[in-house]
Structures are given as C-alpha cells and as structure tokens.
C-alpha cells in the first residue's frame, strides 16, 4: 500500500513533475522572501510575467531564481485579447531562461473580477497549440469549456477556485469535481486559494495540482505559508489517492456493541 506520494508524478504534456504545487512570484515583500518561499514549498514550476525592462530597478528576479533549478512558466497576466497574449508568449521564445515550451495562458475579460474571456482564451489556445506551445489555460470553473480546451490540445486545464487574489477558497467544489470527471488531462486549480485547507480540499476533490501566488506572498509569514501549502497539497493528494469514506447522515459506531457489560 502507498504510504506516501513517492512515485506519484504530475504529467503536463511531455513534462513530468514530482511537486503538484506551482507558485507565482508576484506581490512578495521582497525577492529574498520569494526565493526562500519557493525553496521551502518544494515547487518545481514558478510562474513569471513578461514585462518591459525597468532600467532603474536595483535588482531583478533572476538574481534570486535559478532557471536551471526551477522551470520558469511565463504567463500572460494583463492581456485582454488573444492577440496580445499570443504575442507576449511568442516573445518568450527569444528568452533563454525559459527552457520549456510550457506557457500559462490567461486572457482577462474584466478588470474587477479578472475573470477570463472565454472566446479570446479559446482563440489564443488554438493558435498557441498550433505553434507548438504546451498551453496551460487559466479558465472559468466550467466543465464545458474544459472539454473544449482539452479538444483543442491543451494537455492540462486550470480552472479558478475563486477570483485571482481573493482568497475566497473553492467557490464551487462540485464544478472542480465535474471538470475532473469530464476531461482526461490533469486539472490544476489556479487562483482563489486562501489558506492551506483550501489547497488540501482542492486536492481531495481530485485536482492534480494547485497554482498559488497571493495566498503565500501575502501571508503574514510567506515562508511559513509556503511550507503549509506544500504539506496541504501532499496531504490532500494522499487522501484523494487513499479514498475517503462516504458521507452519511447518521452516526455509525466505531466501537462494536458485542461484549458490552452494561
């Protein structure tokens, strides 16, 4: 019997990972805390943005994150059209520190909720898959959309749990479960996790991985929260693999009645 998650790997297209936790690099109090959080989280994939160089910056992310040690996953945060997202990711092909063709595709539809624009997302995914990218789409928690993205050729789907940075946890756990049953590609819950129990719950529902940024970066002690998330993801995964008991409305005694004295 499996007593741990050793040998249980996350497969995304042609890539294989041991850790099921992906972490973002935004909003940390400083680069040193980001680096330490990444290290203690056990993550193998780190998401980053692509931006104009700030010539006044005193330090940059690459002074802290070694691209030989982590897989850097470029995102399209801030892109509101398929065209902008596709062009942003095409730029990453010229940047050597991206050693894989893995890309996190997000096409935002609304600045208040940061919900994705489904039409633009599908349009961009089609182009990027055709161009040979391994596309990881950030999407609504919508099983129909998940199936469409799988059919397009996305080797993973990434439904949100709740709005980006909201920390609201899993707003619709049943949809995450339905998505998991609908597609055969891995399901990575991306956005909305607030604390360790949210991550654990998502994994117990059958998610294959979690992408977390704000819940770690914005925590009172990001490094402590990074360890908590690592443990939560592993605990949730092992609970899922081990098979939880069915829920029942009434009690079922765990002590036998036979031999009772009084």
């Amino acid at each position: 019997m499996n007593k741990n998650t050793d040998g249980d790997m996350l497969k995304i297209g042609k890539y294989t990972f041991k850790s099921r936790l992906i972490i973002g690099t935004g909003k940390y109090p400083n680069f040193a805390t980001m680096k330490e959080s990444a290290e203690v989280s056990g993550t193998e994939i780190i998401t980053v943005a692509v931006r104009r160089i700030d010539f006044n910056a005193k330090e940059n992310l690459l002074s802290y994150i070694n691209p030989d040690k982590f897989t850097l996953l470029p995102n399209t945060a801030g892109c509101y059209t398929a065209e902008d997202a596709v062009n942003t990711l095409r730029l990453t092909r010229e940047i050597d520190v991206f050693k894989t063709d893995l890309v996190k595709l997000e096409v935002i539809g609304d600045s208040k909720t940061l919900y994705p624009d489904n039409e633009e997302l599908i349009k961009a995914a089609k182009i990027l898959v055709k161009e040979g990218f391994t596309v990881m789409p950030y999407m609504m928690d919508d099983p129909v959309l998940a199936k469409k993205l799988e059919d397009i050729g996305c080797p993973v789907v990434m439904p949100l749990a709740s709005p980006i940075g909201s920390g609201l946890g899993i707003r619709n756990p049943y949809n995450i479960k339905i998505i998991k049953e609908t597609v055969s590609v891995p399901v990575i819950v991306d956005a909305g996790v607030g604390t360790a129990s949210d991550a654990c719950k998502a994994m117990e529902l059958g998610a294959d991985g979690i992408l977390i940024n704000t819940a770690i970066a914005g925590a009172g002690n990001p490094v402590g929260m990074a360890v908590a998330m690592k443990n939560a993801v592993e605990a949730g995964r092992l609970a899922y693999l081990s098979g939880r008991i069915p829920m029942k409305l009434y009690a079922q005694a765990s002590t036998q009645m036979e031999g009772i004295v009084f």
Partner: peptide
C-alpha cells in the same frame, strides 16, 4: 518580434518603437 539570430543585422531607424523585455514577478 526580432529573433535573436537577427539582432546583429537589424538596424534601427529614426522613430522606431523598441520594446526590451524580460521576466518580472507575476502569478
């Protein structure tokens, strides 16, 4: 986008708009 192999041959002209980009923090 200018492919890296073409940097040496790509001559800039007056009023060109150049974007120099790199990786930055994000989630």
């Amino acid at each position: 986008i200018v492919p890296r192999s073409g940097y040496a041959k790509f001559t800039l002209k007056e009023s060109d708009k150049v974007d120099l980009v790199t990786i930055a923090p994000g989630g």
